[in-house]
Design a protein around this nucleic acid. Sequence first.
DNA 1: TAGAAACCATAACCCAGCGTTATCCTTGAG
DNA 2: CTCAAGGATAACGCTGGGTTATGGTTTCTA
Lengths: 310, 310
Amino acid sequence: MPLADSALDSHSLRIVQALAEHGSITAAARALGYSQPAVSQQLKRLELRVGLALVERVGRGVRLTEAGRLLARHARTVTGALNAAAGDLAELQGLRAGLVRVAAFPSASATIVPRLLADLGRRLPGLSITYVEAEPPEAVALVRENRVDLAITFSYPGDLVDPHRDSAEGLSVTTLGRDEVLLVVPAGHRFGDAESIDLGDLAGERWIGGCPRCRGHLLELCERRGFVPDISYETDNVAAVFGMVGAGIGVAVLPTLAIDSVGARSGVLIRPTRPGEYRTLHAVTADGAIGVPALGETLRALASLTVSAR
Amino acid sequence: MPLADSALDSHSLRIVQALAEHGSITAAARALGYSQPAVSQQLKRLELRVGLALVERVGRGVRLTEAGRLLARHARTVTGALNAAAGDLAELQGLRAGLVRVAAFPSASATIVPRLLADLGRRLPGLSITYVEAEPPEAVALVRENRVDLAITFSYPGDLVDPHRDSAEGLSVTTLGRDEVLLVVPAGHRFGDAESIDLGDLAGERWIGGCPRCRGHLLELCERRGFVPDISYETDNVAAVFGMVGAGIGVAVLPTLAIDSVGARSGVLIRPTRPGEYRTLHAVTADGAIGVPALGETLRALASLTVSAR
DNA sequence: TAGAAACCATAACCCAGCGTTATCCTTGAG
DNA sequence: CTCAAGGATAACGCTGGGTTATGGTTTCTA
């Protein structure tokens, strides 16, 4: 069969295209969600199949040869055609199934998601929604794997690990709004009467760490204030955080959604930080999927809910 | 990543397209060179990935659903783009490498191929040719696998096994000419003085079978004349056939190329059959590959050689 | 009406492609 | 000169995708 059938395939072309766009094997790998050796080996195998060099070493990097550039140009056509097919299929799927599969992190489960489901239930009774709880990296992976249509995620300023895998390649990421990060201190705390509390003033306190990403953010916040927090306990369980703070074991920072998810608790005070801290909420979908009517409606509903939540 | 990246790939689309073109999973499998379960399972996996039915059972066959037809339409674009890429790459390869890889059956090795190599050597000194001997089915497989650029094959009228695998899908098959099939009888044979010999007149003779395909053809020839040949010996070795015929052990039919490949032999007479019998010679290349200048030149040279060989 | 052929689905099995991690080498920047 | 960035290679494991075997259903033919 022709070269196209035995040597060229869409996956290989996608890799050549990523190399053309990102300039290095390492960057292309990151963009595609593979390791650097994976891309290096794939290119090597493709070169063997087509019988031509596609990349050449230049210094410590590589560049595409003429043959490689030729393939990269064709790759755009091929992936464009595949995306068009996927878009049409997704549209057919959306029209037919009227189904939107949603994933979100735990504190959204008790706050945003119930309101979203209620709102959509009223306005689009024929729409089916499935929901699974997943932290942002896992939720994004589910979108990439087409197991979920919409992921609600969050990111902190300065996050070193991008939940969208260093690149939103193949994803459509929409900012939904900000979720304020607040201090939780025991009732009767010496700064409890303040309208807001400077984090630096809590340098000597013991801290309750939250989820790994929240903890990472806490570390960064405190570092900016010039101290390293003494984290005595770590738990993802928001109610447990409240319990410990209420018992005077330490203080914590929690996002508003997390606080709202367990409701008001006696024995603790909640105060904004000075300056204010926030995390950003995102809606993540697959490229092209937004053309699916059901998903479009869901995103619009979600956006309006999170605007009013600000 | 979008559906295109995780669920849709060119290989899957090629299978959907083959089903659209050939009408059944069995026929699509034949066209693609796979077994029927292989295609059936691929379609099943694709359906799971895209989350839609692509085929539905109708009687003992299947037909494409709306989603399947949608994908088949897109498949034409995708495979067209891949073929364009392959064509450009092959052209670049041909221009650069100046290499043509040839495969042909044994009796061509001693006749057509040396003349081809000599002719091209004179006219295109910069061209490199590699040659491997292979019977037609194997030679065609080498073309399909892109291990060979050009295969010289033959077929007999009524061949039940098509060396091009039931379909020339992905191949370009050019008729080169006819190769007359002749009778080889011992010198002094009772019909040796005749200008040509009716096969029916040799019904009572003992026969020397040739290669499996030649033998198959012999059986068919004789069946048309109303008898079943008594095949005493079977060998692919043309010289051995001559030796046995010369020793009076039996008679044989051999194509002209086979006869020419070992040259004239004493002790045997060579006569045309009445009516004349022929096999057809073909040049087989991959679709699109003919655009490669070096291969184009080789094909032209081959065609002119085999025209003058008629 | 019965048997055979055509077509498809499924199961079990095997293997090669394709990802990973580990590690080393080369190049370039500071 | 040292360290970081980028790439290549090796070893390993896993899974997708092919095979054969086989059974079921449908349709055609005698």
